[in-house]
Design a protein around this nucleic acid. Structure first.
Lengths: 257, 257
DNA sequence: CGCCCCGTTGAGGAGAGTCAATGGCTGTGG
DNA sequence: CCACAGCCATTGACTCTCCTCAACGGGGCG
């Protein structure tokens, strides 16, 4: 649960004992190997997942074999909250690397949410952020050039990764192929390769064996119009500056009265 | 509230008295004129909206003036559930036509959700469906040709419109310009115009004064790979065939035990 | 009546796609 | 320990979808 708390602590402060209810849940930890499916399109889903280590991705396959990656899942990410509605998944989630995942059955989870306002709020933040990521993905694919798309996505992944792990380097260990990037950004592998080569030549990034170094984040951000605050990180400042030091979440509509 | 119930009744059955709690809320109805903003990017949001009549759209503006429409809102649609987390909006919602909107303050709304499991489940369905729409939008923009995008979106809007109003015609009264379609689909107005002209010539659609007629839905669906079930309508059949006649929602994880 | 917005159409251009060949790595098996 | 297979990134040449610029025309409205 630590990664998830790391991620949340960017937004809300949570006392240690606020987490007790979730620890009492009937959860288990599963390990998936790289390439394994966590969720399969068309199957019923009634568990929620919290990614502890590793990377995963969510995609849809078109009839003719085209693939669109909807988003990437990093440590600390929660999915599929939608399974609480007891629906069939309309997409597949696959492990990119080996993954440790906490699996919680939907029913007890929901019961706990009802009992613990604090935790419900925390998960609501996570869900809101996920939707925000989807919207950003739409803007990225719909209205940006290849170079902007790639730069923008690298910055987003870097930020999310740093947020979850607590690290702060320019290095991004990213276990994805050109084909993955292409399928995420609506491009072809060939064009991704060309574009990233150009970015390398102009000193924006450097690569070695699955690791990308963001050499000039400021320039990259300017160039791809990346808004550092888009993941609601503004809230972070609000919180750290605006609250007394007791370890409670700020008042939101989700708090009990 | 009627449209929203129409929409939901595609998925779940709800007894009349299940709606009482929502009627007791401190809600109000507002009217927005075409072109007015319901939600403005950067402003705090702590109300949720239910669109009763009219069309609205949600968009993001890039620094250089490019616009990306994230999705369209039709009668019966609920937004922004994310305001429950008390965040600043990262996008703008504008009325395309005159709109009647039910506005509910977030706090009492959340209190009601906690007390009424049935209604909470209903809104959860709505939220899940909205996310599903966003994902479909990503696939559409990322991996489809101009003709597929347009055909696919027309079919989606038609289906959603029919679902909300209960009508079932081939006519879709769609108050959007070529520029709107272009900004939704990551194209230019010029290219949208060309593509739709071609679709008209090949007998797929017909247009007159803001109304589009889908002349051959089957062919259009085949051509744009539209999956009729993507809005979780499969569930509808499950429900109508699999339930006894008492007017209750099916059991989901969201139901109380 | 005249303006403005919108849709349409044409001509030319550019960004991204397709097809195909090459070369580096990694893992495996003889 | 080396040879070979398979996957992946890269690069070149060519193509095509979609974009840009621009002109024209129709309909609504003051």
């Amino acid at each position: 649960m630590q990664v998830f708390r790391n991620k949340l602590s960017q937004y809300v402060r949570l006392a240690d004992d606020a987490w007790l209810p979730i620890k009492e849940l009937d959860q288990r930890t599963e390990t998936f190997e790289a390439g394994e499916d966590l969720i399969v399109a068309g199957q019923d889903a009634n568990e929620i997942f919290i990614l502890q280590t590793g990377w995963a991705l969510r995609y849809r396959l078109l009839e003719d074999g085209r693939r669109q990656i909807v988003n990437f899942m990093l440590p600390g990410d929660v999915f599929d909250l939608q399974s609480l509605a007891d629906l069939q998944a309309d997409h597949t989630v696959t492990a990119i690397t080996d993954c440790d995942v906490t699996v919680i059955p939907a029913r007890p989870f929901v019961r706990m949410l009802r009992d613990s306002t604090r935790i419900a709020a925390a998960f609501w933040w996570a869900a809101v952020q996920e939707e925000s990521i989807l919207r950003e993905q739409i803007v990225r694919i719909g209205r940006r050039s290849a170079r902007e798309r790639i730069g923008h996505m690298l910055l987003e992944l870097h930020r999310r990764y740093a947020g979850a792990t607590g690290e702060e380097t320019d290095e991004l260990v990213m276990p994805v192929t050109r084909a993955d990037i292409a399928d995420a950004l609506g491009l072809t592998p060939v064009h991704v390769s060309r574009t990233m080569s150009a970015m390398r030549r102009s000193g924006l990034i450097a690569e070695e064996r699955g690791s990308i170094k963001l050499l000039d984040r400021a320039r990259l951000a300017r160039l791809s119009h990346f808004d550092t605050d888009y993941l609601h990180l503004k809230k972070l400042n609000l919180l750290t500056h605006g609250l007394s030091s007791n370890h409670t979440a700020p008042a939101t509509a989700l708090d009990a009265d």
